[in-house]
Simulated assay, not measured.
Amino acid sequence: MEQELEPPFIIEQIKRAGPFSMDSDHYHDTYEIYYLLAGERSYYINNLIYTLRKGDLIFINKNELHRTTSKGSVRHERILINFEEDFLQKTLANYDLSIPFLTTQSLLLRPGVHEQGAIESILFSMLKEQEEHRSQQIPYLQTLLIQLFIEMNRVQEISREPIAPESSEKQLKVYEMIDYLQAHYVEKLTLEQLSETFFISSTYLCRLFKQTTGFTIVEYLNYIRIKEAQRLLQSTNTKVTTIAENTGFDSIAHFGRVFKQIAKCSPLQYRKQNR
């Protein structure tokens, strides 16, 4: 009987001829690998902004906030892989393989031309396998994923040209804002207060943050708060009302609305599903 490919592993290739920026904040409880086949992209991850060019690869760990936006030439083409924890563990079960980047927040790689060829060969094999729906598809994809991990390990070991974050004066100012939001998210923050803290008008502050990261300040602040709420729901027995207060929300109703918008379930449902 043929084995259907289920959501635990998905790979897709997309080519866009016009400008495209993600219009929503983005993090998930699956692992992600992003490979840029052509063009340029601005990529926001781990509080920093990177300029990606052809051949760059990013591994994103679970629940890492990230977003891509247009950069330079509007045309771009990319391959994206998403896979769940269970798929990963079953993939690794029969291999004695060390994969250091699985325990870090993310991995950014800039492979050389030879390494790009090896990586693209694996990715196109994955795409072909997913499309054809042949027998024993899942184990075949698992072996390809192992090959991809090995190539990524080898590129990381060489590390000829690591991808450095952008560091213009404006971006450094935004990084400073992000650090402040992460340190003070429990407080009742206002645009007026942030404006006074960073000595710039609230209008310019909002525009600069959005242009640099792709997020509004409120969007980013809500994600910090909800990620902490998810951690508390999963690892403690603290009441939901207390968690709402301890993560900076002014009411349980507001907390519930934002939590469901981001996590796609209620706080109590999240606790039940992740225990």
Rank of each mutant, 00 (worst) to 15 (best):
E6S: 13
E12Q: 10
Q13M: 06
K15M: 11
K15E: 15
Y31V: 07
Y34A: 09
L48N: 07
I49R: 10
H66A: 04
R67P: 02
T69V: 10
R75N: 08
R78H: 11
R78A: 13
I79L: 03
N82G: 03
F83D: 01
E84I: 00
E84K: 11
F87P: 00
Q89T: 15
F101Q: 02
L108K: 09
H114T: 13
A118Y: 13
L127Q: 03
E132N: 06
R134D: 01
P139W: 00
T143S: 15
L145Y: 00
L145D: 00
I146E: 04
Q156V: 06
R160W: 08
E161M: 08
E176Q: 15
E176R: 13
I178G: 00
Y180G: 11
L189C: 10
E192L: 15
F199W: 15
T203D: 12
T203R: 11
L205S: 06
L208Q: 15
Q211D: 11
Q211G: 02
F215M: 06
Y220M: 07
E228N: 15
A229S: 08
S235Y: 10
T236Y: 05
N237A: 04
T241R: 13
E245I: 09
G248Q: 03
F249S: 09
R257D: 15
Q261H: 09
I262P: 01
A263E: 03
Y270I: 04
Q273W: 10
